[in-house]
Structures are given as structure tokens and as C-alpha cells.
């Protein structure tokens, strides 16, 4: 059934009538996504792209049975939109905005205690189950259905990995962009857990970057619990210390934050580590062969 989203997902778009949201909603629909409506406060009762617009997430959920939301609101108000979606009981909330204040996400994660929404992002390209559902800004046409799960912080590095795999005929079950912020929704480990459970995924590619402990934590969990092969790459071996490399979370604050340290730890834990970003695709093929799945 892939992970987090598939053809049964009923998707709404928050900030629906905005220019970017409109563009990506159209692309998602063309890609087979079941978009059932959208939310733009103040424009409730109108229609957009032939779909109903609501004033609140609560109304949208009540009227359409939506269980997934794509939040296209700007960073200053995106967390409010996210909290509204959590409160309305949405199962999966994808938050695209780059520039969400860190303290807001700290509070949001506390707010999530006792609630069950899966947050993807912020600062995320979104999530795609090729051919079935896309919630985000990734170019759907580069993805193809298959059995490799991909999880990354970065959007473009996700595209890069996918294109390398596509060239070798390796399609994807689901691709998740967990986002480049230091405090984010689902982490690498949560996505690995979902892929391990998923009967449609044979192997997983984890693409991390400098900063934070999430990659190594996930690798440690994988070493103990996963039966499926995991290929790991970490961007930023050439990054200097103490500088934020584009993503708010991509900064080396201590020794364990470096790409080198993370790659070494992953390797020690038995992951198939890629040191050259151009070799992600071939390494996945090798992993499948070794596992007898190719």
C-alpha cells in the first residue's frame, strides 16, 4: 500500500487559491491525486479548479472526508494552518514552507502529543507515491512506480537520486521529503519504520545532510530492526563548520554533525553507504542484487 499516501488518500490543499498552490494542485491532479477540495479563509463557498473551497479545515474535512492536507501557506502563517489541520484530525499534513520559525515547530511537536497526525516538513518538497498520489512540489514526471522507498531532507537531491534509479529501471514505492529544518515532523527513523512495514517496498534510500542526530539514530534503528536493505548518503562532506548551508538545519555544530561522521556511523551499523552522490542509483541496484530481489 506504499507509505503515508496512496490512491485512497483524500487530499485538500490549504492556501488552495494561491498561485503556487494552484499550479501544484493541477500537477498533482494530472498525476492521479484524489484532490477533493481546498481551504482559503474568506473564500469559503466558492469553487476553484472545479473543486469546493472552504473557510476552515474542519469544514473541509466534514464535507469531503479529507484525510491528507498539503499546506501551501507562507512560512509566517503555515504553522497556524498546520495546527488547524492537526486539530481537525487530518492524518497526514504536508508542510512545504521554507522559513518557519523554529520555536513554533517546538511548540507544534508538543501540541501533537496525544494526537496522531503525521507531519511531513516543513521546508519539504512533499511526498509522492508515483502514479497514485502527490502532495508537494516535486516534478511528478521524473518519478515512476516501483519498489524502492526514498527518504531525504532535500528536494533536489531526492530528484537526483530518483533520476539515477530511473535510468536503471528502478521505480519508487513512495518518496518522502522530511524537510531541511532542525525541528521537523516525521524523522528519518519514522519513515524507515513505515517502509519496513510496507509490503510494496523492497529497499530504502536514506539521503541525509550535515547537522543533527536523525540520520545516525535512524541507522541505529535500521541495524536492529530492518530486514530490508538501506542505502545511505549524507551531503556536505565538503561543508565548512558553523555555516548554515541553505537549509536551516544544515549546520555543523559539533563533531557528530559532520557528513563524514554520519557516513562512518552508518557504515559501522551495516548500511550500504554511498560516498559519491553520483553513485546512489548503482548502489541501490547492488543492494537489491545482494538481497536477491533483482
Amino acid at each position: 500500500m506504499s507509505v503515508f499516501v496512496d490512491e485512497t488518500s483524500r487530499v485538500i490543499i490549504q492556501g488552495f487559491t494561491g498561485q503556487h498552490a494552484t499550479f501544484h494542485a493541477q500537477d498533482a491532479m494530472a498525476h492521479g491525486t484524489n484532490v477533493v477540495g481546498g481551504v482559503t479563509p474568506g473564500k469559503g463557498g466558492t469553487t476553484h479548479l472545479g473543486l469546493p473551497v472552504f473557510d476552515s479545515v474542519e469544514e473541509a474535512v466534514a464535507a469531503t472526508g479529507a484525510n491528507v492536507t498539503g499546506i501551501f501557506a507562507p512560512p509566517q502563517v503555515a504553522v497556524d494552518a498546520l495546527l488547524e489541520a492537526i486539530e481537525a484530525g487530518v492524518e497526514v499534513a504536508v508542510i512545504i514552507a521554507d522559513g518557519v520559525p523554529v520555536h513554533d515547530m517546538v511548540k507544534t511537536k508538543r501540541y501533537l502529543t496525544g494526537r496522531s497526525t503525521t507531519i511531513i516538513g516543513p521546508n519539504s518538497p512533499g511526498i509522492i507515491t508515483p502514479g497514485r498520489c502527490k502532495v508537494g512540489i516535486m516534478p511528478a514526471h521524473i518519478y515512476s512506480p516501483g519498489r524502492i522507498g526514498v527518504v531525504s531532507r532535500s528536494g533536489t537531491l531526492n530528484y537526483e537520486a530518483v533520476s539515477q534509479m530511473s535510468r536503471l529501471g528502478l521505480g519508487q514505492s513512495t518518496c518522502v521529503g522530511i524537510g531541511g529544518d532542525p525541528v521537523n515532523g516525521v524523522d528519518f527513523r519514522a519513515v524507515l519504520e513505515a517502509f519496513e512495514e510496507d509490503p510494496e517496498t523492497d529497499a530504502v534510500v536514506m539521503i541525509g545532510e550535515i547537522g543533527g542526530p536523525q540520520e545516525v539514530e535512524a541507522a541505529r534503528w535500521a541495524a536492529e530492526h530492518m530486514t530490508k536493505p538501506v542505502v545511505g548518503f549524507v551531503a556536505g562532506v565538503s561543508a565548512p563548520r558553523g555555516r548554515r548551508m541553505g537549509h536551516a538545519g544544515a549546520v555543523i555544530a559539533g563533531d557528530s554533525d559532520t557528513a563524514q561522521a554520519k557516513l562512518d556511523a552508518m557504515e559501522e551499523l551495516g548500511l550500504l553507504v554511498v560516498r559519491n552522490p553520483a553513485e546512489i542509483g548503482v548502489t541501490v541496484a547492488r543492494a537489491l542484487k545482494r538481497a536477491g530481489a533483482l
Binding site: S154, E160, M245, G246, H247, N276, P277
Partner: peptide
């Protein structure tokens, strides 16, 4: 480059090929 992740990976690839 476009994207922070690809930008870092591009830098890494340059280093792998022996330059900075």
C-alpha cells in the same frame, strides 16, 4: 546549483574529483 542538498552534493562531487 538549485536546492541546498544538491548544492552540497555538487560541492562534494567536486572534492571527489580532486578540486575544491
Amino acid at each position: 546549483v538549485n536546492g541546498a542538498g544538491l548544492a552540497m552534493a555538487t560541492m562534494d562531487a567536486i572534492v571527489l574529483h580532486g578540486a575544491r
